[in-house]
Write a protein that binds this DNA or RNA. Structure first.
Lengths: 137, 137
DNA sequence: CGGGATCCGAGACGATACTG
DNA sequence: CAGTATCGTCTCGGATCCCG
Protein backbone atom coordinates (compact mmCIF):
# COMPACT_ATOMS: atom_id res chain seq x y z
CA UNK A 1 0.00 0.00 0.00
CA UNK A 2 2.37 2.61 1.19
CA UNK A 3 5.19 2.79 -1.24
CA UNK A 4 6.98 5.36 0.81
CA UNK A 5 5.58 3.94 3.98
CA UNK A 6 4.15 7.22 5.11
CA UNK A 7 0.50 7.28 4.26
CA UNK A 8 -1.20 4.77 6.56
CA UNK A 9 -3.13 7.39 8.47
CA UNK A 10 -3.22 5.45 11.73
CA UNK A 11 -6.36 3.63 10.92
CA UNK A 12 -8.22 3.89 14.14
CA UNK A 13 -10.66 3.18 11.36
CA UNK A 14 -14.09 2.41 12.60
CA UNK A 15 -13.61 1.46 16.17
CA UNK A 16 -13.76 4.98 17.41
CA UNK A 17 -15.94 4.74 20.43
CA UNK A 18 -19.50 4.33 19.36
CA UNK A 19 -18.95 6.04 16.06
CA UNK A 20 -21.04 4.69 13.28
CA UNK A 21 -18.47 3.97 10.71
CA UNK A 22 -19.51 1.66 7.97
CA UNK A 23 -18.68 4.75 6.03
CA UNK A 24 -15.05 4.32 6.84
CA UNK A 25 -13.04 2.79 4.07
CA UNK A 26 -11.46 -0.13 5.88
CA UNK A 27 -14.10 -0.99 8.39
CA UNK A 28 -14.60 -4.75 8.64
CA UNK A 29 -18.32 -4.22 9.04
CA UNK A 30 -18.37 -3.10 5.46
CA UNK A 31 -17.14 -6.48 4.36
CA UNK A 32 -19.83 -8.18 6.38
CA UNK A 33 -22.36 -5.86 4.88
CA UNK A 34 -21.35 -6.86 1.40
CA UNK A 35 -21.78 -10.52 2.36
CA UNK A 36 -25.31 -10.06 3.58
CA UNK A 37 -26.35 -7.54 0.97
CA UNK A 38 -24.70 -9.36 -1.86
CA UNK A 39 -26.73 -10.65 -4.73
CA UNK A 40 -27.80 -13.88 -3.05
CA UNK A 41 -27.23 -13.13 0.61
CA UNK A 42 -30.59 -11.59 1.46
CA UNK A 43 -32.49 -14.29 -0.39
CA UNK A 44 -30.62 -17.15 1.25
CA UNK A 45 -30.95 -15.67 4.71
CA UNK A 46 -34.63 -14.91 4.50
CA UNK A 47 -35.33 -18.30 2.94
CA UNK A 48 -33.73 -19.91 5.98
CA UNK A 49 -35.85 -17.75 8.22
CA UNK A 50 -38.81 -19.89 7.26
CA UNK A 51 -37.25 -23.28 7.85
CA UNK A 52 -34.10 -25.27 7.92
CA UNK A 53 -33.29 -26.29 4.38
CA UNK A 54 -31.00 -28.65 2.56
CA UNK A 55 -28.72 -27.45 -0.16
CA UNK A 56 -30.91 -28.26 -3.11
CA UNK A 57 -34.07 -27.20 -1.35
CA UNK A 58 -32.48 -23.83 -0.86
CA UNK A 59 -31.40 -23.82 -4.45
CA UNK A 60 -34.94 -24.41 -5.64
CA UNK A 61 -36.34 -21.83 -3.25
CA UNK A 62 -34.00 -19.12 -4.46
CA UNK A 63 -34.79 -19.22 -8.14
CA UNK A 64 -31.97 -18.57 -10.53
CA UNK A 65 -29.02 -19.14 -8.24
CA UNK A 66 -26.32 -21.43 -9.56
CA UNK A 67 -24.75 -24.18 -7.49
CA UNK A 68 -21.52 -22.32 -7.41
CA UNK A 69 -22.91 -19.04 -6.17
CA UNK A 70 -25.14 -20.64 -3.58
CA UNK A 71 -22.19 -22.57 -2.30
CA UNK A 72 -20.03 -19.47 -2.12
CA UNK A 73 -22.76 -17.43 -0.48
CA UNK A 74 -23.38 -20.06 2.17
CA UNK A 75 -19.70 -20.35 2.92
CA UNK A 76 -19.38 -16.63 3.47
CA UNK A 77 -22.40 -16.60 5.71
CA UNK A 78 -21.16 -19.60 7.65
CA UNK A 79 -17.81 -17.94 8.09
CA UNK A 80 -19.47 -14.82 9.45
CA UNK A 81 -21.35 -16.96 11.93
CA UNK A 82 -24.76 -16.25 10.47
CA UNK A 83 -25.51 -19.70 9.12
CA UNK A 84 -24.90 -23.08 10.68
CA UNK A 85 -24.08 -26.09 8.54
CA UNK A 86 -24.77 -29.64 9.62
CA UNK A 87 -23.39 -32.45 7.49
CA UNK A 88 -24.40 -36.04 7.94
CA UNK A 89 -21.98 -38.50 6.40
CA UNK A 90 -24.76 -40.78 5.25
CA UNK A 91 -25.33 -42.00 1.76
CA UNK A 92 -26.67 -40.07 0.04
CA UNK A 93 -25.19 -37.22 2.05
CA UNK A 94 -27.50 -34.83 3.84
CA UNK A 95 -26.55 -31.30 4.74
CA UNK A 96 -28.82 -28.94 6.59
CA UNK A 97 -28.51 -25.21 6.78
CA UNK A 98 -29.88 -23.23 9.69
CA UNK A 99 -29.64 -19.70 10.93
CA UNK A 100 -27.61 -19.01 14.03
CA UNK A 101 -29.20 -16.68 16.58
CA UNK A 102 -27.27 -13.77 15.13
CA UNK A 103 -28.18 -14.88 11.62
CA UNK A 104 -31.80 -14.86 12.62
CA UNK A 105 -31.58 -11.30 13.82
CA UNK A 106 -29.95 -10.21 10.61
CA UNK A 107 -32.42 -12.14 8.50
CA UNK A 108 -35.37 -10.62 10.29
CA UNK A 109 -34.13 -7.12 9.58
CA UNK A 110 -33.43 -8.00 5.98
CA UNK A 111 -36.93 -9.36 5.78
CA UNK A 112 -38.21 -5.96 6.89
CA UNK A 113 -36.40 -4.35 3.98
CA UNK A 114 -37.61 -6.90 1.48
CA UNK A 115 -41.17 -6.76 2.70
CA UNK A 116 -41.21 -3.00 2.35
CA UNK A 117 -39.80 -3.14 -1.15
CA UNK A 118 -42.23 -5.87 -2.05
CA UNK A 119 -45.31 -4.01 -0.90
CA UNK A 120 -44.21 -0.74 -2.46
CA UNK A 121 -43.25 -2.24 -5.78
CA UNK A 122 -46.19 -0.54 -7.54
CA UNK A 123 -44.95 2.87 -6.42
CA UNK A 124 -41.46 2.03 -7.50
CA UNK A 125 -42.51 0.86 -10.93
CA UNK A 126 -44.58 4.00 -11.35
CA UNK A 127 -41.58 6.12 -10.45
CA UNK A 128 -39.50 4.25 -12.98
CA UNK A 129 -41.95 4.86 -15.76
CA UNK A 130 -42.12 8.54 -14.93
CA UNK A 131 -38.33 8.76 -14.93
CA UNK A 132 -37.98 6.89 -18.19
CA UNK A 133 -40.71 8.95 -19.82
CA UNK A 134 -39.00 12.22 -18.97
CA UNK A 135 -35.59 11.12 -20.08
CA UNK A 136 -36.22 8.59 -22.79
CA UNK A 137 -38.45 10.81 -24.89
CA UNK B 1 -48.87 -18.18 3.53
CA UNK B 2 -52.08 -19.15 1.77
CA UNK B 3 -55.19 -19.57 3.82
CA UNK B 4 -55.88 -23.12 2.74
CA UNK B 5 -52.31 -24.14 3.35
CA UNK B 6 -51.54 -25.10 -0.19
CA UNK B 7 -48.17 -23.95 -1.29
CA UNK B 8 -49.10 -21.29 -3.81
CA UNK B 9 -47.05 -22.59 -6.65
CA UNK B 10 -47.91 -21.92 -10.28
CA UNK B 11 -45.21 -19.35 -10.66
CA UNK B 12 -47.03 -16.87 -12.77
CA UNK B 13 -44.43 -14.47 -11.51
CA UNK B 14 -44.53 -12.55 -8.31
CA UNK B 15 -47.73 -10.61 -8.43
CA UNK B 16 -49.84 -13.38 -7.07
CA UNK B 17 -51.99 -11.76 -4.49
CA UNK B 18 -49.91 -11.01 -1.45
CA UNK B 19 -47.45 -13.79 -2.11
CA UNK B 20 -43.97 -13.00 -1.02
CA UNK B 21 -42.01 -13.58 -4.13
CA UNK B 22 -38.67 -11.91 -4.27
CA UNK B 23 -37.66 -15.50 -4.61
CA UNK B 24 -39.23 -15.61 -8.02
CA UNK B 25 -36.79 -15.30 -10.83
CA UNK B 26 -38.28 -12.39 -12.74
CA UNK B 27 -39.86 -10.39 -10.00
CA UNK B 28 -39.19 -6.66 -10.44
CA UNK B 29 -38.76 -6.32 -6.70
CA UNK B 30 -35.59 -8.31 -7.05
CA UNK B 31 -34.17 -5.65 -9.32
CA UNK B 32 -35.06 -2.97 -6.81
CA UNK B 33 -33.47 -5.05 -4.11
CA UNK B 34 -30.22 -5.18 -6.02
CA UNK B 35 -30.30 -1.40 -6.37
CA UNK B 36 -30.65 -0.80 -2.68
CA UNK B 37 -28.42 -3.63 -1.57
CA UNK B 38 -25.77 -2.94 -4.14
CA UNK B 39 -22.29 -2.08 -3.08
CA UNK B 40 -22.95 1.62 -2.55
CA UNK B 41 -26.72 1.72 -2.20
CA UNK B 42 -27.00 1.17 1.54
CA UNK B 43 -24.23 3.64 2.29
CA UNK B 44 -25.66 6.37 0.10
CA UNK B 45 -29.16 5.92 1.46
CA UNK B 46 -28.19 5.90 5.10
CA UNK B 47 -25.86 8.85 4.59
CA UNK B 48 -28.80 10.82 3.24
CA UNK B 49 -30.83 9.79 6.24
CA UNK B 50 -28.74 12.19 8.29
CA UNK B 51 -29.03 15.21 6.05
CA UNK B 52 -29.47 16.45 2.57
CA UNK B 53 -26.10 16.36 0.86
CA UNK B 54 -24.48 17.65 -2.27
CA UNK B 55 -22.72 15.34 -4.64
CA UNK B 56 -19.22 15.81 -3.34
CA UNK B 57 -20.31 15.92 0.26
CA UNK B 58 -21.85 12.53 -0.27
CA UNK B 59 -18.73 11.38 -1.98
CA UNK B 60 -16.60 12.36 0.98
CA UNK B 61 -19.04 10.83 3.43
CA UNK B 62 -19.02 7.48 1.68
CA UNK B 63 -15.32 6.80 1.66
CA UNK B 64 -13.90 4.99 -1.29
CA UNK B 65 -16.69 5.50 -3.79
CA UNK B 66 -15.67 6.79 -7.19
CA UNK B 67 -17.48 9.59 -8.96
CA UNK B 68 -18.73 7.20 -11.54
CA UNK B 69 -20.21 4.70 -9.13
CA UNK B 70 -21.78 7.33 -6.92
CA UNK B 71 -23.34 8.88 -9.96
CA UNK B 72 -24.69 5.55 -11.15
CA UNK B 73 -25.96 4.60 -7.73
CA UNK B 74 -27.79 7.89 -7.31
CA UNK B 75 -29.36 7.59 -10.72
CA UNK B 76 -30.72 4.15 -9.97
CA UNK B 77 -32.09 5.32 -6.67
CA UNK B 78 -33.63 8.38 -8.24
CA UNK B 79 -35.23 6.25 -10.90
CA UNK B 80 -36.72 4.00 -8.26
CA UNK B 81 -38.17 7.04 -6.53
CA UNK B 82 -36.06 6.69 -3.41
CA UNK B 83 -33.91 9.76 -3.86
CA UNK B 84 -34.83 13.22 -5.02
CA UNK B 85 -32.40 15.33 -6.98
CA UNK B 86 -32.51 19.12 -7.06
CA UNK B 87 -30.27 20.90 -9.52
CA UNK B 88 -29.71 24.64 -9.43
CA UNK B 89 -28.36 26.04 -12.67
CA UNK B 90 -26.10 28.47 -10.88
CA UNK B 91 -22.39 28.81 -11.37
CA UNK B 92 -20.84 26.79 -9.96
CA UNK B 93 -23.73 24.38 -10.17
CA UNK B 94 -25.31 23.07 -7.01
CA UNK B 95 -27.10 19.75 -6.78
CA UNK B 96 -28.76 18.49 -3.64
CA UNK B 97 -29.79 14.95 -2.91
CA UNK B 98 -32.61 14.14 -0.54
CA UNK B 99 -34.56 11.06 0.39
CA UNK B 100 -38.15 10.78 -0.72
CA UNK B 101 -40.64 9.56 1.90
CA UNK B 102 -40.31 6.06 0.53
CA UNK B 103 -36.57 6.36 0.41
CA UNK B 104 -36.58 7.36 4.03
CA UNK B 105 -38.51 4.26 5.00
CA UNK B 106 -36.11 2.07 3.09
CA UNK B 107 -33.09 3.85 4.51
CA UNK B 108 -34.37 3.47 8.04
CA UNK B 109 -34.72 -0.26 7.63
CA UNK B 110 -31.30 -0.50 6.05
CA UNK B 111 -29.96 1.45 8.96
CA UNK B 112 -31.37 -1.21 11.28
CA UNK B 113 -29.41 -3.85 9.41
CA UNK B 114 -26.22 -1.83 9.42
CA UNK B 115 -26.52 -0.93 13.06
CA UNK B 116 -26.93 -4.56 13.99
CA UNK B 117 -23.94 -5.61 11.94
CA UNK B 118 -21.92 -2.77 13.36
CA UNK B 119 -22.62 -3.62 16.98
CA UNK B 120 -22.09 -7.33 16.47
CA UNK B 121 -18.88 -6.97 14.52
CA UNK B 122 -16.81 -8.41 17.37
CA UNK B 123 -18.87 -11.61 17.30
CA UNK B 124 -18.56 -11.80 13.56
CA UNK B 125 -14.83 -11.38 13.60
CA UNK B 126 -14.54 -14.02 16.28
CA UNK B 127 -16.60 -16.41 14.14
CA UNK B 128 -14.33 -15.73 11.22
CA UNK B 129 -11.22 -16.53 13.14
CA UNK B 130 -12.74 -19.76 14.39
CA UNK B 131 -13.73 -20.72 10.88
CA UNK B 132 -10.34 -19.90 9.42
CA UNK B 133 -8.55 -21.70 12.21
CA UNK B 134 -10.44 -24.93 11.61
CA UNK B 135 -10.03 -24.87 7.88
CA UNK B 136 -6.82 -23.05 7.28
CA UNK B 137 -4.77 -25.35 9.47
C1' DC C 1 -18.89 21.83 -8.91
C1' DG C 2 -21.37 18.01 -10.95
C1' DG C 3 -21.21 15.17 -13.76
C1' DG C 4 -20.66 12.32 -18.87
C1' DA C 5 -17.59 9.38 -22.09
C1' DT C 6 -14.19 6.14 -22.64
C1' DC C 7 -10.90 2.55 -21.71
C1' DC C 8 -9.36 -1.33 -19.29
C1' DG C 9 -8.43 -4.93 -15.75
C1' DA C 10 -10.30 -7.78 -12.10
C1' DG C 11 -13.55 -10.32 -10.35
C1' DA C 12 -18.42 -11.95 -10.40
C1' DC C 13 -21.20 -15.07 -12.39
C1' DG C 14 -23.15 -19.12 -15.03
C1' DA C 15 -22.76 -23.63 -17.49
C1' DT C 16 -20.80 -27.79 -17.56
C1' DA C 17 -18.33 -31.73 -16.06
C1' DC C 18 -16.66 -34.38 -12.43
C1' DT C 19 -16.12 -36.47 -7.44
C1' DG C 20 -17.37 -38.75 -3.01
C1' DC D 1 -27.18 -35.41 -2.80
C1' DA D 2 -23.76 -31.94 -2.02
C1' DG D 3 -20.62 -30.04 -3.53
C1' DT D 4 -15.58 -28.90 -6.25
C1' DA D 5 -12.99 -27.72 -10.58
C1' DT D 6 -12.56 -25.58 -14.79
C1' DC D 7 -13.59 -22.38 -18.20
C1' DG D 8 -15.59 -18.61 -20.68
C1' DT D 9 -18.41 -14.49 -20.46
C1' DC D 10 -19.68 -10.27 -18.99
C1' DT D 11 -20.53 -6.83 -15.74
C1' DC D 12 -18.59 -4.03 -12.15
C1' DG D 13 -15.89 -0.63 -10.93
C1' DG D 14 -11.70 2.46 -11.00
C1' DA D 15 -8.76 5.82 -13.63
C1' DT D 16 -8.61 9.31 -16.75
C1' DC D 17 -10.06 12.98 -19.65
C1' DC D 18 -13.45 16.21 -20.78
C1' DC D 19 -17.39 19.54 -20.69
C1' DG D 20 -20.90 23.17 -19.02
Amino acid sequence: MTADGTVQQTVTGCNDALAFNVFSRDCPSRETLSDITGRWGPLALTALLENTLRFNELRRRVEGVSEKMLSQTLQSLERDGLVHRTAQPTNPPRVDYTLTPLGEEVARRLMDVIELVQTRTPDIEAARHRYDAERGC
